[in-house]
Design a protein around this nucleic acid. Structure first.
Length: 169
DNA sequence: CCTCTGATTGTTCCG
DNA sequence: CGGAACAATCAGAGG
């Protein structure tokens, strides 16, 4: 089924119970006309080679918080095994949290973003290399140079990760 | 057997 | 500027 239509996906959640925004993203699949469903696992790189090696997006502050929250939640709610349940609970709590409390999570997420930015740099290089069509590139083995000699990321530099600035005052 | 779906919010990217 | 898709998770359910 793949839930072509929203229908059973979003369902009623709690729109009435909670005014939680419109949550536009319920199932944005509608617009995307997915030819081949390839989300979590790429079975075979047949034709659906969207991106050779796209770096996964860094977890948002919310996700960072969620990771920890999940443990706590499940710990106190061993009965609950639904990821959705944790998501909801986490979302509610997240909104309930103070910006100051989210700060540490945001700080961490910010750092992830920093590293991600570097990965993107390298990733962009590959992309710029070619807009190769699936067809055009039949056999470019010899030309398959993936070796980026120079290090894209200045490792030695290692900027000091800014800790969360203590806002005392 | 293996793939997908659910649900949260945030973030990121391309056009 | 905006939309659209995807990030983890975990077990269940279906094809």
């Amino acid at each position: 089924m793949k839930t072509p239509k929203g229908k059973g996906a979003a369902k009623v959640t709690k729109e009435a119970l909670k005014p939680a925004d419109d949550r536009k993203v319920g199932k944005r699949k509608a617009a995307a006309v997915p030819d081949k469903i390839s989300k979590q696992k790429a079975k075979k790189e047949k034709k659906a080679k969207k991106d050779p090696n796209k770096p996964k997006r860094p977890p948002s502050a919310f996700f960072v918080f969620l990771e920890e929250f999940r443990k706590t939640f499940k710990k106190e709610n061993p009965n609950v095994t639904s990821v959705a349940a944790v998501g909801k609970a986490g979302g509610e709590k997240w909104k309930s949290m103070s910006p100051a409390e989210k700060a540490p999570y945001e700080a961490k997420a910010a750092k992830k973003k920093d590293e991600y930015g570097k990965l993107m740099n390298a990733y962009n290089k590959k992309q710029e290399s070619t807009a190769d069509d699936a067809n055009a590139e039949s056999d470019r083995s010899k030309s398959e140079v993936n070796d980026e000699d120079d290090e894209a990321t200045g490792e030695e530099g290692e900027e000091e990760e800014e800790e969360e600035e203590d806002d005392d005052d």
